[in-house]
Amino acid sequence: MIPGSFAYHRPSSVQEAVALLADLGTEARALAGGHSLIPMMKLRLAAPDNLVDLAGIKELKSIRADGGDIVIGAMTTQHEVLASDLLTQKIPILRETALQIADPQVRYAGTLGGNVANGDPGNDMPAVMLCLGAAYQVTGKSGERRIAAREFYQGAYFTALEPGEILTAIRIRVPATGHGYGYEKLKRKIGDYATAAAAVVLTMTGGTVASCSIGLTNVAETPLWAEAAANILVGSSLNAATVKRAVAAAEAITAPATDSRGPAIYRTKMAGVMLARALAHARSRAS
């Protein structure tokens, strides 16, 4: 399979990339790790006339602490997420999630920015970003702005990114020391998107849930932040009856498609099962 023709650009700064995208118009696409876009181009489902490769922009590759936040450059690969001691120590759910994305080769290429900015509901990191309350830094011709992950996703492949804007960094408030976390993903095989997956971050005080946040992957046109389900759990001991009510509340906001991963009702139920497992896992890790 051979993609359509395009002109290739390799800017060395964000400003240059943004100027290029503005000049080249709507048929130009930014290229990150390429492992979503290039397969689409090979299938001719995407046929950009210009590709602006972000790989030459050094400022997009960094992981740094900034006060109580960690700021991750958009071109940081999943492999680099796995290799980062800072992330493993401070936001370990990112490592747990990255390990469940695709396969080793794809993780060397695939980027965190591409994963969250593409708007593919099958991608794993968006639900984790909703769970963590992350913010996306984006830059366009008219300057920089910050968008909450929870307000970013509008539909399958539709996001709050304006034409010509690129996502430059992800800013995450470091969860409290001693927090519990879990990302549970049901998939048919290595490399598959989730049939359903759930992300949980919680804190416990004296045997009761002090705070809880839940994200769900691939059970709607967008990743889901299950706020009502999480609120049910706060103040509880995560006893079976309360977990059951929270699972029901999470299932209620899902709207999956019936596809090769199973009928919609099955995928909804699997979202509930993944949530129950992620809660149990998170609780066992909380201190």
Partner: peptide, 20 residues
């Protein structure tokens, strides 16, 4: 389609599927 890995090469110290 970037699944099978038969096209894998080593690129700057990373295993890459050279079809993608």
């Amino acid at each position: 389609t970037s699944h099978c890995g038969a096209c894998t090469v080593d690129l700057d110290g990373k295993s890459m599927k050279s079809c993608t």
